[in-house]
Design a protein around this nucleic acid. Structure first.
Lengths: 341, 341
DNA sequence: AATCATTTCCAAAGCGCTTTGAAGGTCTGT
DNA sequence: ACAGACCTTCAAAGCGCTTTGGAAATGATT
């Protein structure tokens, strides 16, 4: 069933039917209702391609996620982020198109999306400190928003980010307040912007108390369970082991906990752990009292906010670019306690 | 830059340029090269909507994932699955469009995709035992493929699945061979088809040895870490605790391990665990010797296979529907050992 | 009853591409 | 030199929608 058939069925012109359905004022309410009813009855939905061709819009947002052949990892937070974003898209009639590209092809991927007109806007994931993609997207004249920030990028661009620096500063200060002095940082890859900010927060808190950071206590890698386990296991074997850990992800924190328990130590008594918790749907941090003390910030919410801002940017390109900094909550759980004497 | 402009630039008709670019034989190689060069030079890519409108194809595949308001969970395997699928799509010039829908709206979501012509085919995720979506999709005359199967569905449909029954049969038999007699099953939600098959495999192995299953040892729920932990913790407190666990996901297995170690027991000596391992990129099962003995089957591979079959189905609708059953490998790791005397 | 302003509707052009049916050019064989 | 056969190219229609410019119908005003 297409517009032509539907309008014939109704004895109206295509124009009128189209206007009735799209809410234009030039058509009477009586006709509009008649049209709506018929559209429902025949299950009419305008063909998206034809509509897009006529309007110049695709009603779709692109999410390009880069995958290097070296580390083929799809970030585990991705599922929750797009779940949040897609809620918003659905409300506004937008589709979501996903491209997973080798990072070497990423530039051309964006150009193609633009040239082919597949999408009306793009959300950029996982920005690095110095991310050429941002300049490239700007030059394409395609609305985009960054999930995270790129510290070295000078120009303006729309973003939604978590206040990673403050979160990790607070987490570290919280441990310092509990008397901990040797605090390890199990961070994500520090080529990623978010990880650098977290380290800054950690260092800032130490500095505020006049404590010199120990480089041996700072690790940076892809955030797997094994990485958390291996790092903690090694550090706990030292003569002067850390008494607390600040960890960048729940998954790695699970590994840290394993190393702690394997040594016969008790989490929250012998060793304290604070982790960042993205509030992933399949990795809930316990019940009433969270297992881990954590800096929590829902990545699903970030997805919703990012989508909202991007759609707004598309609708109102003249408005100033959105910058939203989400604050993480510091949730006290069972994994922290005073430093052992 | 569009076709019209490009052809004017070249002094050719739109027809010739279009044919040259699409590899039709009616155009000389000399002209074709000239056209290709110019297209490259101007970065010309045909507008996807216009092309789609003309050809009747959208060159996109839809992945609809249902999200009930009760359990808002995005399956953690999803990221890896689509990562695999998108590799194949990219090779064939297809885009991937994602819709995350409330399960109540799922039927209309499919109808809309069909009516709007957004996609040329659909991959169905997470089939239940008795899944009305399959019949519905059939009635829509839209090519589709199911990741998994629906045991109660009688009609034919294309699918790619893991041999869950055999995997869990082998896992259970492996433990039985090691002398274990009280083996717990920490399964996924048994309304899901895959979980039912896994239970069947587990029961089949017990039955083959004439061992009566103990319903108390069988659990079924959403596969979180906490669920694994809670189940194992409780069972290990019993008078007659299980000596081994068969677990449906790595994440839950991490929880089981936690409960074991918390009790001061040693994994692989006091208690054995076999888990199913989807080979997720961010949850690697250890290094040379895996941490967990596991039935491993790469969900990324499943994504690749599913995409391949679906594209094939779209290109050759007359061919018989694809049914591919992937076998899981039984990888021996450090989490299993002979039953304690 | 004639005029004008509204309201309601429509025919047709256009979005950028593919593809049909046909025409102009070039080459063979006689 | 000419018909026939091919190779190469093109104009125009059509995909399903939106939207412009305009016309018909209705109602209000003189």
């Amino acid at each position: 069933m297409n517009l032509k058939e539907l309008s014939q069925e109704l004895g109206l012109s295509q124009t009128t039917v189209s206007r009735a359905l799209n809410g234009y004022p030039e058509v009477s309410e009586a006709t509009r209702n008649r049209v709506r009813l018929a559209a429902d009855k025949y299950g009419y939905h305008p063909n998206a391609r034809a509509k897009g061709l006529a309007t110049g819009q695709s009603m779709a947002i692109g999410h390009v996620i880069a995958k290097s052949t070296s580390h083929e990892m799809v970030n585990p937070i991705f599922g929750d982020f797009i779940s949040g974003a897609s809620e918003v898209y659905a409300q506004h009639g937008y589709d979501m198109v996903l491209s997973i590209v080798n990072d070497s092809d990423e530039a051309t991927a964006y150009s193609n999306l633009k040239a082919k007109g597949t999408v009306d806007g793009i959300i950029l994931h996982g920005p690095h400190l110095d991310d050429p993609r941002i300049a490239h997207l700007k030059s394409l004249d395609l609305p985009f928003l960054v999930h995270g920030r790129a510290s070295h990028e000078v120009g303006d661009y729309a973003w939604v980010d978590v206040n990673n620096r403050r979160a990790f500063m607070r987490a570290t200060a919280f441990l310092l307040d509990l008397g901990h002095r040797r605090i390890a940082l199990i961070n994500g890859l520090e080529s990623m912007d978010f990880a650098t900010r977290r380290r800054d927060g950690y260092l800032g808190a130490l500095q505020a108390r006049g404590i010199a950071p120990d480089p041996a206590l700072m690790r940076s890698a892809e955030m797997t369970e094994l990485y958390g386990y291996g790092s903690a296991r090694e550090m706990l074997g030292w003569n002067a082991p850390p008494t607390a850990f600040v960890v960048s992800s729940m998954i790695s924190a699970l590994g840290v906990r394993r190393a702690i328990e394997e040594r016969g130590l008790k989490l929250g008594r012998d060793i304290s752990v604070i982790t960042h918790d993205d509030d992933l749907s399949y990795l809930q941090n316990g019940g009433e009292v969270p297992i881990f003390t954590a800096t929590r910030s829902s990545v699903r919410l970030a997805g919703r906010r990012a989508a909202t801002h991007l759609l707004d940017l598309i609708a109102h390109p003249e408005k100033p670019l959105a910058h939203e900094l989400l604050e993480a909550e510091l949730m006290v759980g069972q994994s922290t306690g005073p430093a052992p004497a």
